[in-house]
């Protein structure tokens, strides 16, 4: 199943990005930080299911709005990614995005991200879970394509209208 730009825009709309919401507004000034797109794509390739395609443009669109601004959340994403890269360099001698997929998976688990609850001001593992892994999971599973993977095309958080709840399951 292929992720689309519509999915990314939908995911952004569900969390208030691109709709004028102040907390996650994109900083259009000249000092806007660069989103760590490459690393986020590398994480998504681990935490997203293998049957998905179109992950890279989806994450790019999402990350450029979600992780590039001058707001607390974007700063939190960048700080968490920086920590992941530091660990990757220390333990695997390479940046996170340059690791093989198995090593990326291992690193996240060695950091304890798999068993951590998301906490925005918590431990390293809790912050990576909140700002990186769960941000990406929320983006996917609040999107129409992510929802359809599971069996509902209008997941919670997505303004998918009031028709789908009336339809029966597809045969």
């Amino acid at each position: 199943m292929e992720l689309s730009r519509r999915d990314a825009i939908g995911a952004l709309a569900a969390i208030g990005v691109g709709t004028g919401a102040a907390a996650y507004a994109v900083d259009t000034g000249g000092d806007a930080a660069t989103a760590p797109v490459e690393t986020l794509v590398a994480v998504a390739e681990v935490v997203y299911p293998s049957e998905l395609s179109g992950v890279e443009p989806f994450v790019e669109t999402f990350a450029e709005r979600r992780a590039a601004g001058d707001d607390d959340h974007a700063r939190g994403v960048r700080a968490a990614v920086e920590t992941m890269d530091d660990r990757a360099e220390a333990w695997y001698d390479a940046a996170f995005a340059d690791l093989a997929a198995e090593d990326r998976d291992s690193l996240l688990r060695e950091m304890g991200v798999d068993t951590a609850a998301e906490v925005p001001d918590g431990s390293t593992a809790e912050r990576v879970r909140y700002y990186v892994v769960n941000d990406l999971l929320m983006a996917l599973y609040a999107s129409p394509t992510g929802g359809e993977l599971v069996g509902l095309e209008n997941p919670r958080g997505h303004p998918g209208g009031t028709d789908s709840y009336r339809r029966g399951p597809r045969q």
Binding site: V46, V47, Y48, P49, S50, E51, D105, D114, T115, A117, E118, V133, N134, L137, M138, L140, Y141, A142, G146, G147, L149, V150, G151, L152, P155, R156, G157
Partner: peptide, 23 residues
Amino acid sequence: PVELAMTGDDWGDDLLGRLRESY
């Protein structure tokens, strides 16, 4: 599903399998 996706110690195909099973 979206809320369930953010809990648990799985991701990738395992997570999708769990979501499909629970939904």
